[in-house]
Write a protein that binds this DNA or RNA. Structure first.
Length: 510
DNA sequence: TCTGGGGTCCTTGGGCGT
DNA sequence: TCTGACGCCCAAGGACCC
């Protein structure tokens, strides 16, 4: 806790949905729902217009469609959100070197470290300026909370939503929090909330009155202590600019439960490879391999295995995941599979052996010091000959090429980690038109896919900053229609309106 | 009417070395 | 040699967050 409210929390309003509305003028003022469009998809973000129908994050998309049948349902375009996010984070870093991003749309800023504010008036001015700068740079609104601690700044920005700013004066914290529901506090979810409710505690004030000992007895030492301190408005966690990742994982929920053991093994291999890809691109290796299985009845189990040293070898991860799968009963069906790696390091066991070898040579050691097997191989050396690694996975393709191909292609077109399934993509002659994706027509210019089916794709021709555009329908294999990159929400020169040139694929913010 | 994906942190319990 | 206390690591699960 500090004496001046110089910790700022920024929370962009309905971020994914707002980005979609900004890039698609015909959606402004309309109910927009971004999330997984498959049978098991959930809502990632709903615009405020959609929230009026009762749609909210984490709700099954099928339920959202019943509540809001006329909404626009779009798959997330993470690459675009990432680019917008980087622009916003750039503005935050201009305020202070101490910026702690929490996600694409949220961050803490230490205003004191940036020497932009030392008191309430300065903090408020910086917050207002920031909101204006974000609007100018992206056309989007964000809410700002200001307080003397991270927890309170976050509470304040939540209260300020949408498009507002709230400052909690030091000294008023406890009174400010007292009437609020316990669910306001970070770390109090449905389970803890219900636990407390049964004990007759529903507000933060009641939480503070319950006392430290009682809370520790109810929810455990660490959580109880934390809750009590938060209820008093106490929080001295610093803003931390750099955070090391602790794990990397990938998982897939299947539209239909998997029963075939061969198919399940194939999926685990595929996930292992994807996971290693992510691991390598983050410059890490890891020592503990984790397999996650969610069964037909939604019960979830994890199995893990710790290797002798960190690895980023796909063969090693694949084998470990396969070993773990052998110990799992999948009769009844599997709805989700996941593979993860924890115990991250920025080197591999192989590096260490290479280092040792080099060292030995320098020191004039005569022995080749070659560990015969893979040093990072699992606990049981029975694993196998290296030759096995190179072979095809089990010889069984197992993938219905159509579905797998479609998903891959959608991911390719959409950017990383689309939620769930291809959604409303149409597959014909190898061309996919996911709902919401950007396209360009040789004659009509840039637009986006509004829908597709029975060999046709409907495109609305408009761009950020333009008036709502016209809709035209084409054959899915129309040679004049091609996928394109998203246009910047605001011209790169800050001039408003659409940029004339699409950003090169994969390029981040400036 | 069902419940995504990618994370973090905490708790519990067992094994093991000192 | 046996036993208990302790600390550490590992495995598994759960709650929570965005």
């Amino acid at each position: 806790m500090r004496a001046a409210p110089t910790i700022l929390h920024l929370d962009m309003d309905a971020f994914y949905a707002s980005v979609e509305q900004a890039s698609k003028p015909s959606l402004r003022g309309k109910a927009v729902i971004v999330g997984g469009l498959g049978p098991r998809g959930v809502v990632a973000t709903a615009s405020y217009e959609a929230r009026r129908f009762g749609v909210h994050s984490a709700m099954p998309t099928a339920q959202a469609r019943r509540l809001c049948p006329n909404g626009a349902y779009l798959t997330p375009r993470f690459r675009l959100y990432q680019a917008v996010s980087e622009r916003v984070m750039g503005l935050l870093r201009a305020l202070s070197p101490l910026v702690e991003p929490l996600s694409l749309d949220e961050a803490f800023v230490d205003l004191e470290a940036g020497e932009v504010a030392f008191d309430s008036a300065g903090a408020r001015a910086a917050g207002e300026r920031l909101r204006a700068d974000i609007m100018a740079a992206t056309g989007l609104s964000g809410s700002v909370g200001l307080a003397g601690s991270k927890m309170l700044a976050k509470v304040a920005s939540e209260e300020a939503k949408p498009a507002g700013l709230l400052l909690i004066e030091p000294g008023t914290e406890r009174a400010h929090l007292a009437p609020m529901t316990v669910r306001t506090l970070p770390g109090v979810g449905p389970v803890t909330g219900e636990h407390l409710r049964r004990a007759g505690i529903t507000t933060v004030g009641e939480l503070a009155e319950a006392g430290e000992d009682e809370l520790i007895r109810m929810v455990g030492r660490s959580h109880g202590l934390g809750l009590y301190r938060m209820a008093l408005g106490l929080d001295d966690r610093p803003v931390v600019a750099e955070r090391d990742a602790k794990s990397v994982s990938v998982e897939d929920t299947f539209d239909v439960d998997l029963h075939d053991r061969v198919r399940i093994r194939g999926e685990v291999q595929r996930l292992s490879d994807r996971c290693v890809g992510r691991l390598r691109s983050s410059g890490h290796s890891g020592r503990t391999i984790v397999l996650k299985v969610r069964r037909y009845d939604f019960s979830t189990l994890t199995r893990s295995e710790t290797l002798r040293g960190p690895t980023d070898d796909p063969g090693v991860v694949r084998e470990a995941a396969a070993r773990l799968l052998e110990g799992v009963d999948t009769t009844g069906g599997v709805r989700l599979l996941g593979v993860g790696v924890t115990g991250l390091a920025d080197y591999t066991q192989e590096d260490l052996f290479a280092q040792a070898e080099a060292q030995a040579e320098v020191e004039g050691g005569s022995e080749p010091a070659g560990p015969a097997g893979d040093p990072a191989e699992g606990p049981e050396p029975s694993g196998g000959d290296a030759a096995d690694d190179a072979g095809t996975p089990d010889g069984a393709p197992a993938e219905p090429a159509g579905a797998e191909g479609a998903e891959g292609a959608v991911r390719g077109a959409e950017g990383a980690g689309a939620v769930g399934t291809p959604g409303e993509a149409v597959i014909a002659l190898g061309r996919f038109w996911p709902a919401g994706s950007d396209v360009r027509h040789a004659v009509y210019g840039p637009g986006w896919v509004q829908g597709s089916g029975v060999g046709r794709v409907t495109v609305r021709f408009e761009r950020p900053g333009s008036p709502p555009g016209r809709v035209r329908t084409f054959k899915v294999d129309d040679p004049e229609l091609e996928p394109s990159d998203p246009l910047p929400l605001v011209g790169e020169d800050g001039g408003g309106g659409a940029g004339e040139r699409a950003r090169p694929r994969g390029a981040g913010a400036p």
